[in-house]
Design a protein around this nucleic acid. Structure first.
Lengths: 194, 194
DNA sequence: GTCTATATACCGATAGAC
DNA sequence: GTCTATCGGTATATAGAC
C-alpha cells in the first residue's frame, strides 16, 4: 500500500480530497444530488462524514467543486459566441465547442444535465449566471430577431447535443469521433429546419 | 362557497384528493420531487400533513398518482409501435403520439422529464417497465439491426421531442400546432440522418 | 375527514479528542 | 487528517381525539 507522510493520506496516488470528489461524481450522477447523503459519499471513500467536512466546507461546496470547472468551460464557449457574427461557420464552431466540453468531462457532465432541477435548486440564486447560460446560448443560436420556430429549433438542437451524455450507455462501442460527427450533424440539421 | 355533505369536503367542485394531486404537480415540477415536502403540499391545499395521509398512503403513492396515467399513455404508443413494421409512416405516427401525450399533460409531463433522476430513484426497481420504456422506444426507432449511429440518432430524436416541455417558456405565444409541426419535423430530420 | 401531537429516523454540520 | 459523539433541524409517517 502506497502511503506518504508528506501531505496527508494517499491511496493509489490520489489525494483524499480528490477521492471524495470522484466518489461524489459517481453517486450524484447515479442517484441524484440530494438523494445522496454525505454519509454515503464518505462510506464510498472509506472515511467518516466528519473527515469529509475537513476537505469540503459544505455539501454545496462539494457540488461546486464538481460543476464549476465544467460550467466555466461552457461559459468560455458562450462568451466567445456572443462576440461573433451569427454565421453558419460560427454556429458549427460553437456547437462543436459545447459538445467537446461535455464529452471531455464524462460522468460529471452527465450529472449536470440529468439532475438539473436539484442543481438549480442547490446553487439557487447565488450563481445566476450558471443558470442563465443555457438561455443565452439558445438566444444566440436562434439568430437575430428569431421567430417562435427558430427559438424552438435552437432549443431542440441543444437537446440533441445532450444526447452525448447517454451515448456510452446506448452505444458503448462508439468512438468519440463518431459520436461527435453524428450529433453535430443532427444538431445542425435541426437548426437549419430542413 | 360550494360545500357538499355527500362525499367529503369539496372546494370549487373538486375533491380534496384531486386538489392535493394538482398542488403536488405544481410543486414537484417547479421545485423537484424530493425538494418538496409533504408539508408544503398540504399547506398549498390548506390542510395539514396528517390529512394528506388520509388520501395518499405515502409520498410515493402521491407521485405514482401523478405519473402513472402519463406513463400508461406513453406505454400504449410504445406497445403499438413494437407491433408495427418500421416504416417511415409508422415512425411518424409513433413520434406524433409521444409528442401529443406530453403536450396534453402539460405541467405533469414537464415534471416527468425534468426530474427524471429523482423519479427513477423514487419508483426504484418496483416499476422497472416504466424505466425501460424509453429504451424500448429508442430501440424500435433505431430500426432493425441498427449501427451505433442509428442508435444515437434515435436517442437524439427523442431528446428533440422533449423540447416540447420547455416550449411554453421559450415561446409562450407559439400555438401547439406550430410546436408539434416544428419539433416533429426536426425529430424526423435527425432520425433520417440527412 | 381533519385536526394536534408525537414517534422515529436521517440529514447537514460542528465540537473536541487524538 | 481522522475520529467519536452530538446538536439542531426537518423529513416521513402514525396515533388518537373530535
Amino acid at each position: 500500500m502506497a502511503m506518504r507522510s508528506t501531505s496527508g493520506s494517499v491511496v493509489a496516488g490520489r489525494s483524499t480530497k480528490e477521492a471524495i470528489r470522484e466518489a461524489a461524481i459517481q453517486l450524484f450522477s447515479s442517484k441524484g444530488f440530494d438523494q445522496t447523503s454525505l454519509r454515503e459519499v464518505a462510506d464510498a471513500v472509506g472515511i467518516t462524514k466528519a473527515s469529509l467536512y475537513y476537505h469540503y466546507a459544505s455539501k454545496l461546496d462539494l457540488l461546486l467543486a464538481i460543476i464549476e470547472p465544467i460550467f466555466d468551460e461552457l461559459k468560455v464557449v458562450v462568451d466567445r459566441a456572443e462576440r461573433l457574427e451569427h454565421s453558419p461557420q460560427a454556429v458549427r464552431d460553437v456547437l462543436t465547442g459545447q459538445l467537446r466540453v461535455l464529452l471531455r468531462h464524462g460522468t460529471a457532465g452527465t450529472m449536470c444535465v440529468r439532475d438539473t432541477v436539484a442543481i438549480i435548486n442547490a446553487i439557487g440564486d447565488r450563481y445566476p449566471d450558471m443558470i442563465d447560460m443555457h438561455r443565452r446560448l439558445c438566444t444566440w443560436l436562434a439568430g437575430p430577431e428569431p421567430g417562435d420556430a427558430a427559438v424552438l429549433r435552437a432549443s431542440a438542437a441543444l437537446e440533441v447535443l445532450g444526447t452525448v451524455l447517454w451515448s456510452h450507455e446506448l452505444a458503448p462501442a462508439a468512438a468519440d469521433e463518431l459520436i461527435e460527427r453524428v450529433l453535430l450533424h443532427a444538431a445542425l440539421g435541426v437548426l437549419a429546419g430542413e
